[in-house]
């Protein structure tokens, strides 16, 4: 089985003025298809860096990153953009919807950059919006929606390109616990359907839902526990 994510001795260094900060000090990580992994750690431990690298928003300083079997550590900015467009779905803590676009348009954004015809994009967006229970709100602007609804839009948007890897950064951080639960259940469902999910959180309760918890401390992976076999 070709792993979705394979990090080999991943090192990330930042130039911070005269200082060199090592945010990741040689991380090895493998995530198989269908896995639901949670990355945990204190702030500043390097988990955000790790997520950015997994999301192809950043380059490794050293080491290799294989996404779906392809080594993407040496790709150009444009090529990384394409990888993000085709293979990655992002879910953010603050939803990150584009305020001037309505719900459907927000869901369609990733398809724009793939040159998908407008009608096809619209069909897919409607389908996903309906699945997320947003049928009544298609023409609304994000600001007119509740936090939970906005996060549903964001999830729909992350699914619209049918990515091989979904990355969620504290997706429930801005939500009350009830709405947070709903979102987490939605994510559970996605995983049950076979989506590979990596989520960053510092909420233990959230972490319990995942089959695997990766703990990061000071730029290194300090523990890697499986709580069950990935559902196929």
């Amino acid at each position: 089985m070709v792993p979705i994510v394979e990090l080999k001795n991943a090192v990330k260094e930042y130039e911070n003025g005269p200082l060199r900060v090592r945010a990741l000090r040689g991380v090895d990580l493998r995530i198989d298809p269908g896995e639901y992994a949670v990355i945990m750690g204190a702030s500043g431990c390097g988990k955000s860096t790790l997520l950015n690298l997994l999301g192809c928003l950043d380059h490794l300083s050293e080491g290799d990153y294989l996404l779906g079997g392809d080594n993407i550590s040496k790709l150009s900015d444009d090529e990384l953009s394409e990888i993000r467009s085709r293979r990655i779905g992002f879910i953010f803590q603050s939803y990150n919807l584009i305020p001037q676009l309505n719900i459907l348009e927000n869901i369609e954004v990733p398809l724009f950059y793939q040159g998908i015809p407008e009608r096809e994009a619209r069909e897919r967006a409607i389908e996903l919006a309906e699945r997320m229970g947003l049928s009544e709100r298609l023409k609304h602007k994000p600001m007119e929606l509740s936090g939970g609804q906005q996060q549903r839009v964001a999830i729909a948007r992350s699914l619209v390109t049918d990515p091989i890897l979904m990355l969620a950064d504290e997706p429930t951080g801005n939500l009350d616990s009830k709405t947070g639960h709903e979102i987490l259940e939605l994510i559970d469902d996605l995983n049950a359907e076979g989506k590979t999910i990596v989520m960053v959180t510092h909420d233990d309760e959230v972490a319990h839902r995942a089959q695997r918890v990766v703990r990061v401390f000071d730029g290194e992976i300090v523990s890697n526990e499986w709580k069950g076999a990935p559902k196929q």
Binding site: S81, R84, F90, N96, I98, V109, Y113
Partner: peptide, 13 residues
């Protein structure tokens, strides 16, 4: 922020 979102969602420079 919009630029960041678009870039994350696959927009090239």
């Amino acid at each position: 922020r919009e630029i960041g979102i678009r870039r994350a969602l696959g927009a090239r420079r």
